[in-house]
Structures are given as C-alpha cells and as structure tokens.
Computed example of a mutant assay.
Amino acid sequence: MGPEEDLPTLISQKDHLNVLRYVRAHQLREPNLVVNHGKILLQSKSLGDAERLASLEQICIAACDIGDLDLAESCLDSIVNPTSNNKSLIVTKQSSRYRKLLALCLEAAGNYESAGAVYDILLQDNPSNAYAAKRKYCILAAQPDLAAWNQMAEMCLSVSDFKGAAYCYEELVLGCPLDSNIHTKLGEVYCTAGGVENAKLARKHLAQAVQLDPNNLRAWYGLVAAAEGYLEEVEKISKNKREAEDEGVEVAKELIKFGGEKLVGIYKGTKLAKVVNAVLKESSESL
C-alpha cells in the first residue's frame, strides 16, 4: 500500500487486505466495511498467518459492532483453532488477547454479567488494564438501574474520576431522593473534587443527608469537612470574587459550629469525646 493510496481508492481496487490495514492504521470505525472486505479476504489461501490472525481479530470486533454474532463467534473459534502450526501465533483461551474478544462477543449478545466476569479476570491479572476497566464501565452504562449506577460510581472513584462518580450519584439521588447515605457519598465526592462550586454542592448534599438522618455520623463529619473545605477554597480566589462569597462564608462558619456541637453531643460520655472535642476545637480556632 503506497502512501498516496486512500481508502476510496483501495475500495475501488478491491484491495481487501489493504482496506483492513488502512482501517486499522487510522483507527477508523467502519464495521460494515471491515466485515464485507474481511469475509472475502479470509477466503484467500495466500494470506499469511500473522495477517490472518490480525484480520480475524479485526473482523470479530467489527461483527460484534454490527450485531453479526454468528460471524463474531466463527472468527473467535478460528483464532483459537488455527490451521497454521506456527506456535508463535497460537492464541489460547487463557490469554488476554482471547478474553478481550470473548468479552466483546458476550457484550454483543447482551450477556453483560458474563462479560463483566471476564473483564474482572483481566483486571485481576493486571489491575492497570485500562481497556478492561473502560469496557466494564461501558457495561454498567448499558444497565442504567440503581445497582449499576452505584457500581459505576465505585469504578469512577477507583480511577479518581470524581466528575463521573458525581454524575452516577446524582442519578442515584434521583432514584432514591430520601436515602441519606447516597447524599453523603455524593457530598463527599464533590468535597474531594475541590473548587468553590463543588464545595457548595458538597455542603448542600451533606446538609440534606443529616436532615434525612440526624444519626448519620459520617454525614455530620462530612458536613463540617465540606464547610471547612469551602472556606479554604474561598481563600484561593481573587479578592473581588471572594467578596461575592461573603454570605456563603458566614453560612459555612455557622455550619462548622452547628455540626461541631452536634458531634460533641453525640460523643458526650464516650471514650472518644476528648478526641472529638480536640479536633473540633482546632477547627473552630482556625475560623
């Protein structure tokens, strides 16, 4: 394939091998094109072993993309049962190369549970496998029920995607608006994300959490932490913008005082009372 040859030219020349090569090299998403030219290409007896393997993988992915499960499974079977005796090109069912394709086929068939299990195996073998993590994220996104949103949020947090986690918890809040724990988690995510606006959102949801459940200790601690975080973020912005936050600053100080008094009352008479008092005293002195 010469550098001057573009995809339309290759297609018109019926150069099936180089059509697939071009699509791979330019990372194009042309599943129908790949399937149409790939089917013909695989019939060629002159196709080399390495090129056949690469083409089978490419066609398998494209077939999953267009929902041709029979073709995808046929390619998958040919990959682990090659006609060649070249040991360097043998793909076993235990290899990550095979498992990635298997999971895609399972996804295409709507078998998300099994696909997720395969991605879990890939992540156990290599926790930094970004591909497996991304595909598992996509599986959860395809199942927009409450359990899936929660799992997706946890996955986002595992890779420090606070924006994504906040989105997931917001969806959970819509489904369970009276769940104090969900408001707590959402508030914590916003608090961790940082920034004045996120600090305000953190304060809002943590305040909602303690209103829904006055005994939610995690939410009370979070509320105090969010208010302190807000004050710290305000100090970072310009003087003009800081003046616009005067009312918010007063609210934050009151929340720290109110939350502190609540926590002192909860721990009064317990072994942790002195520790809690010392921590909250330090917070109030910094105001």
Rank of each mutant, 00 (worst) to 15 (best):
A108V: 01
D70A: 07
S128G: 05
L140S: 13
C105M: 05
L101T: 00
P127N: 01
D70N: 10
L146S: 08
P144W: 04
Y167C: 12
L89I: 01
A117D: 03
A165W: 04
V159A: 09
K163T: 14
T92D: 07
D161Q: 04
S158M: 12
R97P: 00
Q151G: 11
Y119N: 06
S158A: 15
E171S: 13
C75D: 08
A153D: 04
L122S: 11
L76K: 08
D145S: 10
F162E: 07
Y131I: 09
P82R: 15
G116S: 11
L140H: 12
E113Y: 00
R99L: 13
L104Y: 10
S84E: 05
E107G: 03
I90H: 15
I90K: 15
L69F: 07
P82T: 10
G116L: 02
E154S: 13
S160M: 09
N111M: 02
A133K: 09
L69G: 03
N150D: 11
A130L: 08
G110C: 05
R99C: 06
S95P: 01
G116Q: 04
L71N: 02
T92P: 09
C168K: 06
G110F: 03
R99H: 10
A109D: 11
A148C: 13
M152K: 14
Q124M: 09
S128D: 07
A108I: 00
K100S: 01
D77H: 14
A109R: 11
I121F: 06
A103P: 00
E171L: 12
Y137K: 12
Y98C: 01
Y119W: 10
Y112E: 00
G164F: 06
A115T: 02
R97D: 09
N126P: 04
F162T: 10
A142G: 11
V159N: 09
E170Q: 14
D145P: 10
R97A: 13
L71F: 04
M155I: 03
C138V: 05
W149F: 14
T83R: 13
F162M: 09
L101D: 00
T92E: 07
S158F: 14
S74P: 08
L140P: 02
T92C: 08
Y167P: 01
A148F: 02
A153V: 01
P144N: 07
C75I: 11
Y119C: 06
Y98F: 13
A166M: 06
D145Q: 07
D161A: 06
N86R: 06
S95L: 05
A115R: 02
S128Y: 09
D77P: 00
L106C: 03
G110L: 03
A133E: 04
K134M: 14
C168V: 07
Y98A: 05
D70T: 07
